[in-house]
Amino acid sequence: MTPLDDFDGLDFEDRMATATFDVAGDAHIVVDGDACEGCTTKACVTVCPASLFVELSSGGVLFNYEQCFECGSCYLVCNEAGAITWRYPEGGKGVIVRRG
């Protein structure tokens, strides 16, 4: 179990399972792994509310785009210019908020 799991008696995966996603075929987030290796803050790992970014032992960052809330926090906190390229997913795809 990572330190991110099991807050509030609720597993993070169970938390994310309450949100609805119609996953696009193409990733709307692109991360430049070379730029990440020199990054000392890795703020994307902390702030992403869907916890889509994971720090690798190599110093790089592993990410997935499938359960993205499309908030934009990751690219805004990214301190390595251009390491995260972020756009809205294809029309009709991505998160579907039912009780926002």
């Binding site: 169970d14 994310m16 908020v97």
Partner: peptide, 22 residues
């Protein structure tokens, strides 16, 4: 949610949707 003034208000509920926005 665990604060003593808030916990009783949210006790016994079930999470139906988690979301985030800037």
């Amino acid at each position: 949610k665990a604060h003593p003034s808030i916990a009783p208000l949210v006790a016994g509920t079930e999470l139906v949707e988690y979301a985030a926005h800037l």
